[in-house]
Design a binder for these strands. Structure first.
Length: 424
RNA sequence: GUGGGUGUAGCUCAGUCGGCAGAGCACCGGGUUGUGGCCCCGGCGGUCGAGGGUUCAAAUCCCUUCACUCACCCCA
């Protein structure tokens, strides 16, 4: 048997109702906030990601699905969406029409990581990006959208962590400060942290090894090292969040894994997810558009990990089961043929109907109707055909009506529309 | 890339010391001439993850490998 590729998964009918629901909620919310959908390809030139995400990140170094196509070009399945969105913003010169754009995109991303709970090699993200606005109101607004989305899904145990990574003016100074801080504690650090110290000292805050955590206890905070402009920006963001009554925690160790972030970064965490607890993350990336060859326009946005969202919403799938309103139990060749026609007529009248094409026993058909959760069973066989009637049975109340064949479809439509089942 | 756990029917899992491959659920049929859920009886259903080895004999012991899963790493 051919099996699905490692780290990939099928989303089965039992779950797709929930996925559709989540997507509908987020689309409506984003459109209300002035976002427009952008659909971007799954495949890009490898260089786009190397330049935007950062050549020395894990994603680019060892997680991308990269291959050479027949023309010799190096192509990569997108590991994230922001780079593509920025590319499209630049390529189609959207900034020339209006510098301010609010865009969202929904779809799969690909990273070749070891699969784990809440982590797949093809995973789904909802991305929202704002271009052309550098006011802290914009940061706060983006976070408001994210937290409102969580709220509308009924997810209350989400904590928001925020931080500021500074800008090209203040960050280099801070990196040096961190390096000199750990210089005297090298023997406490794990081998990974020793490597990070040289390559990307901000990562030292991320380590979960107890000894490293302890060593970093009194490390300098980037928030003390921000330049005046960044400090003011961060203060404003916090002020607006408080105005929205969005609770937040400041985590000066919150370091995003992608190089392009500046100033505000944030993460939405769900403790119940365990170790893979980041359900959404984002921040400001004021230098990215220019770095990719566009105008000097700021950006801010977030990505929601839909797979992890689904973990949080697990158990609600049955709310979206599609149960038929009417099950047609037809016995005998003639009844099967007539029932087959009714089946289609009912569907055209928006009544969900099912039947069994095999001429099975009534007991078997009743059992199946019950299993599918049908509200009504329409019973028809030789006896009914001779009488010119069929029996419509309510599966809950067990009440039965004899319905003349001529009026049958209309009768069934009326009956199912007036019942509570028809309007659910 | 590193480490732990698990692979037996569609699903959940038993399988003792190496001795005929099992149960429940689900599905199909019957008990009940044509009225669901409960009950009873019967039936269908297997490359015991795969390959090799030891043995008269392997689901069971040994080796290899693959997959799933959890954690590290990293990220959403």
């Amino acid at each position: 048997m051919i099996k699905l590729v490692r780290g990939f998964k099928d989303i089965l009918p039992a779950d797709t109702g929930l996925w559709q629901y989540v997507e509908a909620i987020v689309r409506e919310l984003l459109e209300d906030f002035g976002f427009s959908e952008l659909r971007i390809p799954l495949l890009e030139q490898t260089e786009l990601f190397a330049r935007s995400i950062g050549g020395d990140t894990d994603i680019v170094e060892k997680e991308m699905y990269t291959f050479t196509d027949r023309g010799g070009a190096s192509l990569t399945l997108r590991p994230e969406a922001t780079a593509s969105v920025v590319r499209a913003y630049i390529e189609h010169r959207l900034y020339a029409k209006d510098p301010v754009w609010k865009l969202y995109t929904i779809g799969p991303m690909f990273r070749r990581e070891r699969p784990q709970k809440g982590r797949y090699r093809q995973f789904y993200q909802i991305n929202a990006e704002v271009f052309g606005l550098n006011h802290p109101k914009s940061d706060a607004e983006v976070i408001l959208v994210l937290m409102t989305f969580m709220d509308r899904l009924g997810l209350s145990d989400i904590t928001l962590q925020i931080n500021s990574l500074g800008c090209p003016v203040c960050r280099p100074h801070f990196k040096i400060a961190v390096q000199s801080f750990v210089a005297s504690r090298s023997e406490q650090l794990c081998s990974d942290c020793l490597r990070r110290r040289d390559e990307n000292p901000l990562r030292l805050f991320d380590c979960k090894v107890p000894a490293c955590k302890e060593a970093m206890q009194d490390a300098p905070s980037i928030l003390d090292d921000l330049c005046g402009a960044c400090q003011a920006h961060f203060a404003e963001v916090k002020k607006y969040l408080e105005g929205f009554e969005i609770p937040y925690q400041i985590n000066h160790g919150l370091v995003r894994g992608l190089d392009y972030y500046t100033r505000t970064t944030f993460e939405a965490l769900a403790e119940s997810l365990g170790t893979q607890n980041a359900v959404a993350g984002g921040g400001r990336y004021d230098g990215l558009v220019k770095a990719l060859g566009g105008p000097d326009q700021p950006g801010v946005g977030f990505a929601i990990g839909v797979d992890r969202l689904m973990e949080l919403l697990a158990g609600r799938s049955q709310d979206f089961d599609k149960t038929p309103h009417v099950y047609i139990a037809a016995m005998g060749e003639r009844a099967q043929d007539i029932g087959f026609q009714w089946l289609q007529d009912l569907r055209f009248q928006k009544v969900r109907a099912e039947m069994d094409f095999e001429n099975r026993s009534l007991k078997s058909q009743m059992r199946r109707a019950d299993k599918l959760g049908a509200a009504y069973v329409l019973i028809v066989g030789d006896r009914e055909l001779e009488e010119g009637t069929a029996v419509l049975r309510n599966m809950t109340t067990k009440e039965q009506d004899k319905v003349p064949l001529q009026d049958l479809v209309r009768f069934v439509v009326d009956r199912t529309n007036t019942s509570s089942v028809g309007s659910r």
